[in-house]
Amino acid sequence: MDKITLSHDVAVSESGFMFLPTTGESFTVNATGRCIIGAIQSGRSESETLKILVAEFGVDERTAERDLREFVSQLQRYHLAQTQDNK
């Protein structure tokens, strides 16, 4: 599975506020998004992040995978994260 890392200069607050000082852009994430960001920050892999979502929220793994995929693509789109293809 892909390894996800946050951009080195992004600042994340505990409340889910994200700030990109290089562009001045700011973002908010909801509770589920905060959980994912926290997992990425602590170096968890995508599969570990999935397990955390399932444990924390009781969501089924397929739904979590599908939603995580979209969330990460949004992070990438905003230049907040990169993924590394671990084949």
Partner: peptide
């Protein structure tokens, strides 16, 4: 973690803020 203490699942969402 027991089922009763689980948080409500809401699709993860990130919103860009347009302060201007």
């Amino acid at each position: 973690m027991s089922l009763g203490s689980r948080k409500r699942y809401e699709r993860p969402t990130i919103l860009k803020q347009y302060s201007g």
